[in-house]
Design a protein around this nucleic acid. Structure first.
Lengths: 251, 251
DNA sequence: CGTCGTCGGATTGTTACCAATCTTTCGGCG
DNA sequence: CGCCGAAAGATTGGTAACAATCCGACGACG
């Protein structure tokens, strides 16, 4: 047996194969993405709260598929830190620690400050209109008290900015961070804070429209810090006595 | 059958279970990580060049395991864009497009500029010494002409800076970007460029040590752009004639 | 009455097998 | 001689059964 791995570079596909699919026959990979998104949306919208168990068989039945596919989807979500997997126990909606929460917001501040500046440079009339329309939809959702839509639109505003910035890699990174933010907010939000700051997006947009990139970046930083400060990240989050290290060397 | 998913939050584990393992019995998850890292290192070090096929059975034999585990590892690498998977054809070491390459470096510039500034704020004596020692090891590798060590150490310098910056999330993001950079360099490097810029890390470090965060950030930007400019990203990369769209409507 | 130990049920993780798809080789034909 | 077509081989993708592990309940004992 040859113990070497094939090096026939020429035989490798140059790129992910093109769209050679017929009209209505959504292929298997597509179906898997649907399941992935359905789960992700359910988590982000808190219909699946942090800590909820995600049994493979039950999910397979719900989505009309088999366990192995569910398993792949859960693995993907686990890699994105949306679910945590425990050996021989299964998958659960993730419960970010306080430290995780801080790092998520730190990361977002660092990332989005620069993304806003990048978006400011590339901002065209088309993009500006999309942003305006989006903020208007946010206002409308707020007016009619649709909390679910507000949360979803609020996240999408940030993603829209990242899209304008024009780097898909960072857009994907931010997508993960926004999703994780939902978990953090779900875990640590003050009950009495549900509806503030719904005009900060408008402030950011105004600064962008005025061509003031620095002001827009500052507004973004302020906005993210506002969200974070509305959380209760100072609680001990559980005594968490480590008996093992406490009795280390005593055996 | 209850179509609802269990909501027993209380039953969920608070965190990934602690290290409750005995001395020498590295568990299954650990073995899987080993395989993952072995593959990743082989790709980064170009022993597995872009486009190389990664047959599941062969890898399973090599690592003394079964196909399903290899399959999981390949899936993880695919999610990180280190390998590309084609339905019914298998997994290949990824071949980033020219556009991918540009976005990788754009993302790194945006990210690392801020990371350097963050590192400057948190820079202690301990971290400074680690950085100095690291750059010294880079110089040594350069002196003895050890190209492999230089490439590895060069990547690790950036990761070390990210570690100093103190955000594990962004550290992980950068780890992926650095790994993808290796693929990009492997694909688009000028043959006659193999050894330049090995003192730019020193420049960055000096600026940091002098407390000049802005200069350090600028040096980082310059450094990354140097690497990118040494690539051939202006080639057509393949005519890529799309016959399908070319003859659309002609059937 | 509380605690520890044991057993049963349920869920996850693994393995082996089969089906589907793609590549390659071989043969025929122009 | 080269090109097209078909069958064989190889590899991947999916399914189902089995093994291992964990949780909860029950009962015994202190």
């Amino acid at each position: 047996m040859t113990s070497d791995i094939a090096f026939d570079t020429a035989a490798a596909p140059r790129q992910a194969q093109g769209p050679s699919r017929r009209k209505g026959d959504l292929d298997e990979a597509e179906r898997e993405s649907r399941i992935y998104e359905a789960l992700l949306v359910a988590i982000v919208e808190r219909r699946l709260p942090p800590g909820a168990k995600l049994p493979e068989i039950e999910l397979a039945e719900i989505f009309g598929t088999n366990r192995s596919r569910i398993r792949r989807v859960l693995g993907r979500l686990a890699q994105e830190r949306m679910v945590s997997q425990v050996l021989n126990r299964g998958s659960f909606v993730a419960r970010p620690t306080v430290e995780d929460a801080r790092e998520v917001f730190d990361a977002r501040r660092l990332l989005e400050r620069s993304l806003v500046r990048a978006a400011a440079e590339r901002l065209g009339e088309r993009a500006l209109q999309r942003l305006r329309a989006h903020v208007e939809r946010e206002r409308e959702a707020a007016r009619r008290g649709d909390a679910l839509a507000r949360v979803r639109l609020s996240g999408e505003f940030h993603l829209l900015l990242a899209e304008v910035a024009g780097n898909r890699i960072l857009e994907d990174v931010l997508r993960e961070l926004v999703a994780r933010s939902s978990l953090v907010v779900a875990l640590y939000e003050h009950v009495a804070s549900a509806d503030c700051s719904h005009e900060e997006h408008g402030t950011i947009l105004d600064a962008l429209a005025a061509g003031e990139a620095g002001a827009a970046a500052d507004a973004m930083l302020h906005h993210l810090s506002e969200i974070e400060e509305r959380l209760r990240l100072d609680q001990p989050e559980e005594p968490k006595i480590d008996l093992r290290s406490l009795f280390a060397g005593a055996r």
